[in-house]
Design a protein around this nucleic acid. Structure first.
Lengths: 183, 183
DNA sequence: CTAATTTGCGACATCGGTGTCTCATCATAC
DNA sequence: GTATGATGAGACACCGATGTCGCAAATTAG
């Protein structure tokens, strides 16, 4: 095979990141293969999207493993873990931003389930941070989680429109998320 | 006419808010009219979307007028104006949330131009707030604006999923935007 | 070189959404 | 009542995207 399944997924991800409604024909072209070959690897558009979704969730889970989430973190490392999560999420969103609004993520049962599990782990961390006084406790944890979601969408939009430089993103998100916009 | 153009737009807006990719047939059904009648009022889907876009921008501009934006606000009223803007934007987003991601808003020249003008006014306010020390000055104003955009998307998502109560939204957004999630 | 495999190309049927049209029906105004 | 105008139902053609297929060319393995 001239083009591996993994290469297809990578190229498709890149293309969908700046053209989320692309057709199979567009995706095939961006990968550099024919429509037929693309269909040989992924029978339907749905199948392709689900495969991309799993890959995005792999990256998300990779973030969790890398920062040691789910290992009942001691109080000392809570803040450190939270910051690492934010940084890693930004990076993941830059690569898999399209998945943030891909509707296959809400259609496919398995994807939904897995995404909920990952989200639950983050909410657990947020709750722990609230109990430890690191994060304010007068917000529902789910709102804090959704806030991060919104900021990642703001990142995607900022990059797409060229509003801010890529290298500034981590600082902007971290500061905005943690301290807000007030001086 | 049993159903006025305005009623159609209102119902269509409601339906698109929880089903942003709805077809003309679905929209007609949600309005309670036939597909033919819908097409009599709006020849094409594009025309309908543009009309909805103008309405959303009318609401947005209405927010600006109500809080007196663009009248070279004195320093004293800057903070007050900013807070009013945030509150009003939340309310507008609850009604016209679908417009935040409707691609007609990026396709139609006139809509783009008008949206840019409105955005520019807000960025002006943000800049003024930064100069007055109300908002931190180490963020590009456009990022602050995009942050608000992201938070409004978080609101839309939170309401769609039923994560938080509608009445809590203003406090959550205001506090998150201004002070962040840290205690 | 040869055989097996993979690919690209083009044709094809299918499907759903769109936009147009006709005609019968219904409400309203006069 | 009659006339006017809006509506709903249904049929139709059109379009773009999807998914399938066969075949020839190219690549790879042996």
């Amino acid at each position: 095979m001239a083009v591996s399944r993994d290469q297809i997924l990578t190229k498709a991800t890149e293309h969908l990141n700046h053209s989320p409604a692309a057709s199979m024909a567009e995706i095939a072209q961006s990968v550099g293969i024919s429509r037929a070959t693309l269909h040989r690897h992924f029978a339907t558009r749905e199948a392709l999207m689900v495969a991309l979704g799993w890959r995005a969730l792999d990256a998300w889970q990779g973030v969790h493993e890398r920062i040691g989430l789910g290992e009942t973190p001691a109080g000392e490392r809570l803040e450190e873990t939270l910051h690492a999560l934010l940084i890693a999420q930004i990076e993941a969103a830059e690569n898999y931003g399209f998945a943030l609004t891909e509707q296959a993520m809400e259609t496919d049962r398995a994807l939904v389930t897995r995404a909920e599990e990952l989200e639950a782990k983050e909410i657990e961390l947020i709750s722990a941070c609230q109990r430890a006084g690191i994060l304010r406790a007068d917000f529902p944890p789910i709102w804090v989680s959704n806030t991060l979601y919104g900021l990642l969408l703001a990142v995607r939009e900022s990059l797409r429109r060229g509003d801010v430089a890529r290298r500034d993103i981590p600082r902007l998100v971290l500061e905005t998320f943690l301290r807000g916009t007030t001086s």
